[in-house]
Design a protein around this nucleic acid. Structure first.
Lengths: 145, 145
DNA sequence: CCAATATACATAGCATGCTATTCAAATAAG
DNA sequence: CTTATTTGAATAGCATGCTATGTATATTGG
Protein backbone atom coordinates (compact mmCIF):
# COMPACT_ATOMS: atom_id res chain seq x y z
CA UNK A 1 0.00 0.00 0.00
CA UNK A 2 1.18 3.42 0.99
CA UNK A 3 0.62 4.56 -2.54
CA UNK A 4 -0.93 7.15 -0.30
CA UNK A 5 2.29 9.08 -0.72
CA UNK A 6 2.16 9.24 -4.50
CA UNK A 7 -1.57 9.99 -4.50
CA UNK A 8 -1.51 12.64 -1.85
CA UNK A 9 -1.70 16.22 -3.04
CA UNK A 10 -0.26 17.35 0.28
CA UNK A 11 2.75 15.09 0.00
CA UNK A 12 3.43 16.04 -3.61
CA UNK A 13 2.98 19.75 -3.06
CA UNK A 14 5.24 19.67 -0.05
CA UNK A 15 7.93 17.79 -1.91
CA UNK A 16 7.66 20.07 -4.92
CA UNK A 17 7.84 23.18 -2.77
CA UNK A 18 11.04 21.95 -1.13
CA UNK A 19 12.65 21.16 -4.47
CA UNK A 20 11.74 24.56 -5.86
CA UNK A 21 12.98 26.32 -2.75
CA UNK A 22 16.30 24.51 -3.04
CA UNK A 23 16.58 25.39 -6.70
CA UNK A 24 15.88 29.04 -5.92
CA UNK A 25 18.44 28.99 -3.11
CA UNK A 26 21.06 27.70 -5.53
CA UNK A 27 20.12 30.26 -8.15
CA UNK A 28 20.06 33.40 -6.02
CA UNK A 29 22.57 32.32 -3.38
CA UNK A 30 25.43 33.78 -5.40
CA UNK A 31 23.71 37.18 -5.19
CA UNK A 32 23.64 36.91 -1.41
CA UNK A 33 19.87 36.34 -1.37
CA UNK A 34 17.81 33.51 0.06
CA UNK A 35 14.34 32.18 -0.79
CA UNK A 36 12.62 33.43 2.32
CA UNK A 37 13.65 36.98 1.49
CA UNK A 38 12.17 36.91 -1.97
CA UNK A 39 8.55 37.81 -1.21
CA UNK A 40 9.70 40.74 0.92
CA UNK A 41 12.08 41.88 -1.79
CA UNK A 42 9.28 41.79 -4.35
CA UNK A 43 7.17 44.00 -2.14
CA UNK A 44 10.02 46.43 -1.46
CA UNK A 45 11.18 46.60 -5.07
CA UNK A 46 7.69 47.67 -5.91
CA UNK A 47 7.71 50.34 -3.22
CA UNK A 48 9.90 50.77 -0.17
CA UNK A 49 9.68 53.11 2.76
CA UNK A 50 6.85 51.09 4.23
CA UNK A 51 6.26 49.73 7.70
CA UNK A 52 6.46 46.11 8.72
CA UNK A 53 2.70 46.04 9.22
CA UNK A 54 2.15 47.17 5.62
CA UNK A 55 4.50 44.49 4.34
CA UNK A 56 2.77 41.80 6.39
CA UNK A 57 -0.43 42.56 4.55
CA UNK A 58 1.30 41.94 1.24
CA UNK A 59 3.52 39.00 2.04
CA UNK A 60 1.81 35.73 2.90
CA UNK A 61 3.61 35.03 6.16
CA UNK A 62 2.89 35.79 9.78
CA UNK A 63 4.15 38.95 11.42
CA UNK A 64 6.69 37.08 13.55
CA UNK A 65 8.11 35.36 10.49
CA UNK A 66 8.50 38.64 8.65
CA UNK A 67 10.12 40.27 11.68
CA UNK A 68 12.83 37.59 11.66
CA UNK A 69 13.29 37.79 7.90
CA UNK A 70 13.70 41.57 8.13
CA UNK A 71 16.27 41.15 10.88
CA UNK A 72 18.32 38.85 8.64
CA UNK A 73 17.93 41.21 5.70
CA UNK A 74 19.17 44.08 7.81
CA UNK A 75 22.11 41.99 8.99
CA UNK A 76 22.86 41.15 5.34
CA UNK A 77 22.82 44.78 4.25
CA UNK A 78 19.65 44.51 2.16
CA UNK A 79 17.45 46.89 4.12
CA UNK A 80 17.77 49.88 6.38
CA UNK A 81 15.18 51.12 8.87
CA UNK A 82 14.42 54.74 9.67
CA UNK A 83 12.11 56.21 12.31
CA UNK A 84 8.51 56.66 11.26
CA UNK A 85 7.62 60.29 11.98
CA UNK A 86 3.93 59.40 12.08
CA UNK A 87 4.16 56.53 14.57
CA UNK A 88 7.05 55.91 16.88
CA UNK A 89 6.11 52.27 17.34
CA UNK A 90 7.16 51.43 13.82
CA UNK A 91 10.04 52.19 11.50
CA UNK A 92 10.03 52.68 7.74
CA UNK A 93 11.86 50.02 5.79
CA UNK A 94 14.06 51.00 2.86
CA UNK A 95 16.10 48.91 0.48
CA UNK A 96 19.81 49.64 0.37
CA UNK A 97 21.25 50.68 -3.00
CA UNK A 98 22.83 47.24 -3.12
CA UNK A 99 19.47 45.49 -2.79
CA UNK A 100 17.94 47.78 -5.40
CA UNK A 101 20.73 46.95 -7.79
CA UNK A 102 19.96 43.24 -7.52
CA UNK A 103 16.35 43.48 -8.71
CA UNK A 104 16.81 42.72 -12.38
CA UNK A 105 19.23 39.85 -11.92
CA UNK A 106 17.28 38.29 -9.07
CA UNK A 107 13.99 38.42 -10.97
CA UNK A 108 15.61 36.83 -14.00
CA UNK A 109 17.10 34.03 -11.91
CA UNK A 110 13.80 33.35 -10.14
CA UNK A 111 11.97 33.30 -13.45
CA UNK A 112 14.59 30.84 -14.67
CA UNK A 113 13.89 28.52 -11.76
CA UNK A 114 10.18 28.64 -12.51
CA UNK A 115 10.84 27.91 -16.16
CA UNK A 116 13.08 25.02 -15.28
CA UNK A 117 10.47 23.51 -12.98
CA UNK A 118 7.81 23.88 -15.66
CA UNK A 119 10.06 22.72 -18.51
CA UNK A 120 8.22 19.45 -19.02
CA UNK A 121 4.80 21.09 -19.21
CA UNK A 122 3.27 22.40 -22.40
CA UNK A 123 1.83 25.87 -22.93
CA UNK A 124 -1.66 24.92 -21.93
CA UNK A 125 -0.60 23.10 -18.79
CA UNK A 126 1.34 25.95 -17.24
CA UNK A 127 -1.56 28.37 -16.78
CA UNK A 128 -3.72 25.44 -15.74
CA UNK A 129 -1.29 24.54 -12.98
CA UNK A 130 -1.12 28.13 -11.77
CA UNK A 131 -4.87 28.35 -11.77
CA UNK A 132 -5.34 25.07 -9.90
CA UNK A 133 -2.82 26.12 -7.27
CA UNK A 134 -4.46 29.52 -6.87
CA UNK A 135 -7.88 27.89 -6.47
CA UNK A 136 -6.58 25.48 -3.83
CA UNK A 137 -5.03 28.39 -1.95
CA UNK A 138 -8.35 30.23 -2.09
CA UNK A 139 -10.17 27.18 -0.78
CA UNK A 140 -7.80 26.74 2.13
CA UNK A 141 -7.80 30.41 3.04
CA UNK A 142 -11.57 30.54 3.41
CA UNK A 143 -12.43 30.96 7.03
CA UNK A 144 -8.88 31.51 8.17
CA UNK A 145 -8.61 34.93 6.71
CA UNK B 1 3.21 45.64 -10.40
CA UNK B 2 5.01 42.60 -9.17
CA UNK B 3 2.28 40.33 -10.30
CA UNK B 4 5.36 38.16 -10.34
CA UNK B 5 4.04 36.74 -7.10
CA UNK B 6 0.70 35.57 -8.50
CA UNK B 7 2.29 34.25 -11.67
CA UNK B 8 5.14 32.39 -10.04
CA UNK B 9 4.76 28.64 -9.70
CA UNK B 10 7.37 28.66 -6.96
CA UNK B 11 5.54 31.26 -4.93
CA UNK B 12 2.17 29.56 -5.33
CA UNK B 13 3.48 26.09 -4.60
CA UNK B 14 5.30 27.30 -1.52
CA UNK B 15 2.23 29.08 -0.22
CA UNK B 16 0.00 26.11 -0.94
CA UNK B 17 2.40 23.73 0.77
CA UNK B 18 2.40 25.85 3.92
CA UNK B 19 -1.38 26.03 3.99
CA UNK B 20 -1.70 22.27 3.56
CA UNK B 21 0.92 21.61 6.22
CA UNK B 22 -0.96 23.83 8.64
CA UNK B 23 -4.23 22.11 7.83
CA UNK B 24 -2.63 18.71 8.42
CA UNK B 25 -1.11 19.92 11.68
CA UNK B 26 -4.54 20.96 12.87
CA UNK B 27 -6.10 17.69 11.78
CA UNK B 28 -3.62 15.24 13.28
CA UNK B 29 -2.40 17.35 16.17
CA UNK B 30 -5.13 15.95 18.44
CA UNK B 31 -3.67 12.48 17.82
CA UNK B 32 -0.28 13.68 19.01
CA UNK B 33 1.15 13.59 15.49
CA UNK B 34 2.77 16.30 13.39
CA UNK B 35 3.13 16.75 9.62
CA UNK B 36 6.85 16.05 9.47
CA UNK B 37 6.30 12.64 11.01
CA UNK B 38 3.74 11.59 8.46
CA UNK B 39 6.03 10.30 5.70
CA UNK B 40 7.99 8.27 8.22
CA UNK B 41 4.82 6.89 9.71
CA UNK B 42 3.58 5.86 6.27
CA UNK B 43 6.79 3.93 5.70
CA UNK B 44 6.69 2.29 9.11
CA UNK B 45 2.99 1.41 8.98
CA UNK B 46 3.79 -0.43 5.81
CA UNK B 47 6.67 -2.29 7.43
CA UNK B 48 8.63 -1.53 10.57
CA UNK B 49 11.78 -3.07 12.01
CA UNK B 50 13.86 -1.23 9.45
CA UNK B 51 17.00 0.85 9.76
CA UNK B 52 17.22 4.60 9.37
CA UNK B 53 19.14 4.13 6.12
CA UNK B 54 16.30 2.05 4.68
CA UNK B 55 13.76 4.68 5.68
CA UNK B 56 15.84 7.46 4.13
CA UNK B 57 15.55 5.73 0.79
CA UNK B 58 11.77 5.77 1.06
CA UNK B 59 11.14 9.15 2.60
CA UNK B 60 12.04 12.18 0.51
CA UNK B 61 14.14 13.99 3.07
CA UNK B 62 17.83 14.05 3.89
CA UNK B 63 19.37 11.69 6.42
CA UNK B 64 19.97 14.45 8.93
CA UNK B 65 16.35 15.55 8.73
CA UNK B 66 15.09 12.03 9.27
CA UNK B 67 17.46 11.53 12.21
CA UNK B 68 15.92 14.52 13.97
CA UNK B 69 12.39 13.45 13.12
CA UNK B 70 13.05 10.00 14.55
CA UNK B 71 14.45 11.53 17.71
CA UNK B 72 11.24 13.50 18.19
CA UNK B 73 9.13 10.44 17.42
CA UNK B 74 11.04 8.45 20.02
CA UNK B 75 10.58 11.25 22.54
CA UNK B 76 6.84 11.25 21.74
CA UNK B 77 6.49 7.50 22.23
CA UNK B 78 5.80 6.70 18.58
CA UNK B 79 8.85 4.53 17.88
CA UNK B 80 11.27 2.32 19.72
CA UNK B 81 14.76 1.32 18.56
CA UNK B 82 16.39 -2.05 19.06
CA UNK B 83 19.92 -3.21 18.28
CA UNK B 84 20.48 -4.50 14.76
CA UNK B 85 22.09 -7.95 15.10
CA UNK B 86 23.48 -7.68 11.58
CA UNK B 87 25.15 -4.29 11.90
CA UNK B 88 26.03 -2.65 15.16
CA UNK B 89 26.20 0.80 13.58
CA UNK B 90 22.46 0.88 13.11
CA UNK B 91 19.36 0.08 15.09
CA UNK B 92 16.04 -1.30 13.93
CA UNK B 93 13.12 1.04 14.22
CA UNK B 94 9.75 -0.26 15.44
CA UNK B 95 6.44 1.46 15.91
CA UNK B 96 5.01 1.38 19.41
CA UNK B 97 1.58 -0.23 19.81
CA UNK B 98 0.25 3.27 20.32
CA UNK B 99 1.58 4.46 16.95
CA UNK B 100 0.22 1.35 15.26
CA UNK B 101 -3.18 1.99 16.73
CA UNK B 102 -3.28 5.47 15.17
CA UNK B 103 -2.88 4.33 11.57
CA UNK B 104 -6.48 4.19 10.51
CA UNK B 105 -7.53 7.45 12.12
CA UNK B 106 -4.44 9.34 10.94
CA UNK B 107 -4.85 8.17 7.36
CA UNK B 108 -8.48 9.18 7.37
CA UNK B 109 -7.67 12.63 8.72
CA UNK B 110 -4.88 13.18 6.18
CA UNK B 111 -7.15 12.07 3.37
CA UNK B 112 -9.70 14.53 4.68
CA UNK B 113 -7.20 17.38 4.46
CA UNK B 114 -6.38 16.45 0.88
CA UNK B 115 -10.07 16.32 0.03
CA UNK B 116 -10.64 19.67 1.62
CA UNK B 117 -7.80 21.25 -0.33
CA UNK B 118 -9.11 19.76 -3.56
CA UNK B 119 -12.74 20.53 -2.82
CA UNK B 120 -13.07 23.19 -5.49
CA UNK B 121 -11.57 20.99 -8.22
CA UNK B 122 -13.64 18.68 -10.39
CA UNK B 123 -12.95 14.98 -10.98
CA UNK B 124 -10.80 15.55 -14.01
CA UNK B 125 -8.72 18.25 -12.45
CA UNK B 126 -7.60 16.28 -9.43
CA UNK B 127 -5.63 13.59 -11.26
CA UNK B 128 -4.32 16.28 -13.59
CA UNK B 129 -2.96 18.26 -10.69
CA UNK B 130 -1.32 15.18 -9.18
CA UNK B 131 0.22 14.33 -12.51
CA UNK B 132 1.52 17.85 -13.13
CA UNK B 133 3.07 17.96 -9.68
CA UNK B 134 4.67 14.55 -10.15
CA UNK B 135 6.11 15.61 -13.48
CA UNK B 136 7.57 18.80 -12.03
CA UNK B 137 9.14 16.77 -9.22
CA UNK B 138 10.64 14.43 -11.77
CA UNK B 139 12.03 17.35 -13.75
CA UNK B 140 13.63 18.91 -10.73
CA UNK B 141 15.07 15.65 -9.44
CA UNK B 142 16.91 14.98 -12.66
CA UNK B 143 20.60 15.34 -12.08
CA UNK B 144 20.31 15.68 -8.33
CA UNK B 145 19.50 12.09 -7.71
C1' DC C 1 -7.54 63.79 31.04
C1' DC C 2 -7.34 58.66 32.17
C1' DA C 3 -8.24 54.02 32.04
C1' DA C 4 -9.20 50.36 28.61
C1' DT C 5 -8.27 48.66 24.23
C1' DA C 6 -5.95 48.18 20.00
C1' DT C 7 -1.89 48.19 17.20
C1' DA C 8 3.20 47.59 15.86
C1' DC C 9 7.04 44.98 16.77
C1' DA C 10 10.12 41.90 19.11
C1' DT C 11 11.19 37.65 21.21
C1' DA C 12 10.88 32.86 22.90
C1' DG C 13 10.14 28.24 21.83
C1' DC C 14 9.37 24.70 18.68
C1' DA C 15 9.07 21.91 14.10
C1' DT C 16 10.99 21.06 9.53
C1' DG C 17 14.61 20.96 6.35
C1' DC C 18 19.20 21.57 4.47
C1' DT C 19 24.42 21.32 4.28
C1' DA C 20 28.58 20.06 6.44
C1' DT C 21 31.10 17.56 9.78
C1' DT C 22 32.29 13.87 12.83
C1' DC C 23 32.58 9.11 14.68
C1' DA C 24 32.27 4.40 14.69
C1' DA C 25 31.69 0.19 12.48
C1' DA C 26 31.84 -2.57 8.30
C1' DT C 27 34.04 -3.63 3.82
C1' DA C 28 37.32 -3.60 0.33
C1' DA C 29 42.18 -3.40 -1.30
C1' DG C 30 46.86 -4.50 -0.82
C1' DC D 1 45.86 -8.93 8.36
C1' DT D 2 46.34 -3.91 8.04
C1' DT D 3 45.13 0.19 5.92
C1' DA D 4 41.86 2.75 3.14
C1' DT D 5 37.32 3.50 1.91
C1' DT D 6 32.52 3.30 2.50
C1' DT D 7 28.47 3.36 5.13
C1' DG D 8 25.12 4.38 9.12
C1' DA D 9 24.04 7.80 12.35
C1' DA D 10 24.45 11.79 15.19
C1' DT D 11 25.26 16.56 15.72
C1' DA D 12 26.08 21.51 14.81
C1' DG D 13 24.63 25.54 12.59
C1' DC D 14 21.46 27.96 9.88
C1' DA D 15 16.95 29.42 7.39
C1' DT D 16 11.89 29.40 7.34
C1' DG D 17 7.62 29.31 9.47
C1' DC D 18 4.19 29.03 13.19
C1' DT D 19 1.97 30.06 17.78
C1' DA D 20 2.07 32.47 21.92
C1' DT D 21 3.71 36.35 24.67
C1' DG D 22 5.56 40.61 26.05
C1' DT D 23 6.26 45.67 25.56
C1' DA D 24 5.67 50.11 24.05
C1' DT D 25 2.96 53.45 21.78
C1' DA D 26 -1.65 55.01 19.88
C1' DT D 27 -6.38 55.45 20.08
C1' DT D 28 -11.01 55.34 22.24
C1' DG D 29 -14.59 55.83 25.63
C1' DG D 30 -16.06 57.89 29.73
Amino acid sequence: MSHFKDQSSGYLVNHLARLMEQALAEAIGPLGLSPGQFPTLLALWERDGRTQAELVREVDVEQATLALTLKRMERDGLIQRKPNPDDSRSRLIYLTPHAKALEERALALAAGVNDQALADLDDKEVPHLLSLAARMIQTLRKGTD
